[in-house]
C-alpha cells in the first residue's frame, strides 16, 4: 500500500486506551470547571486567593471517581472535551494566576495573548457548523469519518505552518497558530479524546463559546 493511500485512509484509526481517555475526560473537565469557577469568582469580586482555592477545589472534586463528582455526570452527558478547549482554559487560567513577571503581557509567549484570533474564531464556527450538519447527514460524504484519517492533522498542520513559515513567524502568536499546532501535535501523540482529529480540535462547547466570542468582537468593532 502506498504512503498516500495510508495517509488518506479512514480505515485504520488509532483510538486511545480506555484508561487514558477516562483520565483525559476528568482532567479536561477539571481544568474547564476550574477556569469557570475562577472566572465567576473574579466577576463577583472575591479575593484572588479565594478564587484560586475555589478553582482548585472544583478541579479536585471533578477528578474524584464515582457518581458524587461532576466528572461522572459531565462525561455521561457530554463525553470528553477537545484538547483545544482544555488548553485554552488552562492557558487563560495560567495567565490569570501566574506571577506577573513570568508573563509580561506586552510580550506574548508561544501561545497567544488573545488566543482566538478573528480568523480562527470564524474558522472554528464554520467547522462546527459543517460537523453539526454532517452529523445529520446533510452532505453526500461523511466528514466526521475523515477525522480518523492521518490526512486531517497533516492538512491542518500544513495549512497553518506553511503560511507562518513563509511569513517568518510574523503575527503567528497573535493568530493562534501555535495553539492549533500544539493541539494537533498532542492529538497525534496521544489520540485524545477519541481518536478522531475533529474531536481534538473542536467540541460543541468550544464551538458555542466561539459564537459568543465572535459576536462580542463583532459588536465591539462595528462602526
Amino acid at each position: 500500500m502506498s504512503l498516500l493511500a495510508q495517509i488518506i485512509s479512514t480505515e485504520a484509526p488509532s483510538l486511545p486506551a480506555l484508561a487514558l481517555s477516562t483520565l483525559w475526560l476528568h482532567l479536561g473537565w477539571a481544568v474547564v470547571l476550574a477556569w469557570l469557577v475562577a472566572g465567576v469568582g473574579r466577576w463577583t469580586g472575591v479575593q484572588r486567593t479565594v478564587q484560586w482555592g475555589l478553582a482548585a477545589a472544583i478541579a479536585l472534586w471533578t477528578c474524584v471517581p464515582g457518581p458524587y463528582a461532576p466528572g461522572y455526570w459531565l462525561g455521561l452527558a457530554f463525553q470528553a472535551l477537545s484538547i483545544s478547549l482544555v488548553v485554552l482554559c488552562a492557558w487563560s487560567f495560567y495567565r490569570r494566576y501566574a506571577p506577573m513577571p513570568a508573563l509580561p503581557r506586552k510580550n506574548p509567549p508561544d501561545l497567544p495573548d488573545r488566543p482566538a484570533s478573528g480568523v480562527l474564531v470564524l474558522a472554528g464556527i464554520f467547522l462546527g457548523w459543517v460537523l453539526l450538519l454532517d452529523a445529520f447527514a446533510v452532505f453526500p460524504v461523511a466528514l466526521y469519518a475523515w477525522g480518523f484519517s492521518p490526512a486531517v492533522p497533516v492538512a491542518i498542520l500544513l495549512a497553518l505552518l506553511l503560511p507562518w513559515a513563509l511569513r517568518k513567524g510574523n503575527g503567528a502568536a497573535a493568530s493562534g497558530v501555535p495553539l492549533v499546532v500544539f493541539v494537533m501535535l498532542a492529538f497525534v501523540a496521544l489520540r485524545l479524546p477519541s481518536g478522531n482529529a475533529w474531536d481534538a480540535l473542536l467540541d460543541p462547547w468550544l464551538w458555542l463559546a466561539l459564537h459568543v466570542i465572535g459576536l462580542r468582537r463583532w459588536i465591539l468593532v462595528r462602526p
Binding site: L18, T22, L25, H26, P65, G66, P67, G71, Y72, W73, L74, G75, L76, Q79
Partner: peptide
Amino acid sequence: GVQLGYGV
C-alpha cells in the same frame, strides 16, 4: 459507569 469513569 464505575469501569468507564462516567455514568451510563
